[in-house]
Design a protein around this nucleic acid. Sequence first.
DNA 1: CCGCATCCTTCTTGATACTG
DNA 2: CAGTATCAAGAAGGATGCGG
Lengths: 137, 137
Amino acid sequence: MILLDNSIHARSYQAPEGNLEFKPIPSNGICTRLGDKWTVQVLWRLSRADERRLRFSALKKEIDGITQRMLTLTLRNLERDGLVVRHYFPEVPPRVEYELTDMGTGVLHALEGLNFWIRDNLPTIEEHRRAYDKAEQ
Amino acid sequence: MILLDNSIHARSYQAPEGNLEFKPIPSNGICTRLGDKWTVQVLWRLSRADERRLRFSALKKEIDGITQRMLTLTLRNLERDGLVVRHYFPEVPPRVEYELTDMGTGVLHALEGLNFWIRDNLPTIEEHRRAYDKAEQ
DNA sequence: CCGCATCCTTCTTGATACTG
DNA sequence: CAGTATCAAGAAGGATGCGG
């Protein structure tokens, strides 16, 4: 997904006036990434943390249901894209913190429109789904 | 994911001022849908068509690389969610047109912010990817 | 504590052939 | 023309065990 397929809430979304002004640009995997199961959840948790930084274990604790493996993979991809930076402290036991970059913050802002749209339209969509499924038996 | 992983272009994106104002809401599969390989491509083609309607075969011709099977599946999902309506004409040979609903148009508007963000940030992201991959050997 | 390796299951996409 | 059915390939996600 883009937004959470688990989580809650917000203010109102004003659809822009007039016609659609974009031709969709190639996203080179960005959208697939944002649409996966955990990415936005991770970005959002980091955005709410002190100094936009959290330890691996803190993220794992906050994100319900995520496995160590998936958290690692998700963070690696975000790091590779420059949305998150990894800070490694070679203590014993080791400590690792992940920090949201400005670009990481930016993508969350860019998702606000979609977020509000979903909030406003999800009930209607689910209504359609029920009707459709019923018609199919 | 959301925008095209194949396609081009647009105007500028003004990031909202101040702090992030949303807690991501549950999307119930919407985001996964928007993040898949063909959904946005289909929505966008319909949005540019006369009366926002196109025949199945026209869509197939316009969307490079899509198979009959994937176009069918994509349209079924969009129809189920109420983003598209299917008009069936029992002629010989049969004719089927798909029409973008207001809600379908709405979701494209809601994606504009993301679209512009990607256009503006993709070069930087790809730079990060190259650096990351190089560091990994 | 953090993360890698391995194995396994499920989902998504694609290729191809057939039909009202 | 606009599908459906079937099969196969690959990617994504989950479970579990080991290691610095």
